[in-house]
């Protein structure tokens, strides 16, 4: 029996009178790939924003590796090892690919501002380490030959990939991917699926992914949570979920059950 790295209990978020997320509970297994699916406006991204501290939780609990993280500042949650990508890509657009990753590596160095200003030995030593780490990550992820390209000049698919590399630079234990395959053709989606599985194994982390591409979700997720109107509709393995009548009706039913 493996452990749950992320446990969500009774999570609720209200915007005024609207409950965007209402009493949702689920957990993510350590080392697993879990999927979060549901029609548009079901509250998937809101849940990501709640986990990462971008929104304040109205009520409920979010526990990461046994530690309560709701109401922590986003950067502290990132510090603990939870990071994410965005539905609409948010790179540091005017910086080079290398600098995007180098910036995110910052937590691997501990030198202080006076040490930086005076260029003391620790600054030089740790800067070199950071640069090596960024270069290494880019090599593993196949972006090394584009290191000097300005991020917003990258082709779309690679921008998504760069966002994942930037997230990996934080040495996360839990990676949240918000529609990583949005706007990708079947070929690219296929590549992305392999990439996600590869990342999970190579960096030994857990993944929670929001996605609309059913092939991707059914192909790589071991566990799927289905949301509708801010509430959990169903939960289980891909096989269980795809035959669940409630899910069929709310989500897959309309597209003719292609997922099976």
């Amino acid at each position: 029996m493996s452990v749950d790295i992320l446990e969500i209990k009774g999570l609720t978020k209200r915007f005024g009178g609207l409950a965007a997320v209402n009493d949702v509970s689920f957990s993510v297994r350590e080392g697993g790939i879990s999927g979060l699916i549901g029609p548009n406006g079901a509250g998937k991204t809101t849940i990501f924003n709640l986990i990462t501290g971008v929104y304040k939780v109205t009520s409920g609990e979010v526990a990461f590796a046994g530690k309560r993280i709701e109401n922590l500042e986003p950067y502290k949650i990132a510090d603990l090892g939870v990071t994410r990508t965005f539905q609409n890509i948010r790179l540091f657009k005017n910086l080079s690919v290398f600098d995007n990753v180098l910036t995110a590596c910052h937590m691997s160095a501990k030198y202080t501002i006076p040490e930086a200003i005076l260029r003391l030995p620790r600054f030089r030593r740790e800067e070199k380490l950071l640069a090596d780490k960024a270069r290494g990550l880019l090599e593993i992820m196949g972006l090394a030959d584009r290191m000097d390209v300005q991020a917003n000049n990258l082709p779309y698919g690679l921008q998504r990939r760069l966002e994942i590399v930037r997230a990996l630079a934080l040495d996360p234990k839990l990676l949240l991917l918000d529609e990583p395959a949005a706007g990708m053709n079947p070929d690219e989606t296929e590549q992305l699926m392999r990439l996600i599985m590869d990342i999970r194994d190579r960096f030994t982390l857990s993944v929670l992914v929001i996605e609309h591409h059913m092939d991707l979700v059914m192909g790589i997720c071991e566990h799927i949570v289905v949301l509708n109107f801010g509430q959990k509709l169903a939960e289980g393995t891909p096989d269980e979920v795809s035959v669940d009548p409630k899910v069929m009706e709310a989500y897959l039913g309309s597209s003719g059950g292609t997922a099976c």
Partner: peptide, 30 residues
């Protein structure tokens, strides 16, 4: 002093704030 600061991780964090505040936060920048 300024050139050294800007070229350090602290300077890069400031640039990250300028470029994309939300992404900077998620990348662990206070």
């Amino acid at each position: 002093f300024l050139a050294n600061l800007v070229k350090s991780r602290h300077g890069r964090n400031m640039i990250a704030v300028r470029e994309e505040e939300l992404a900077a936060q998620i990348a662990g920048v206070d």
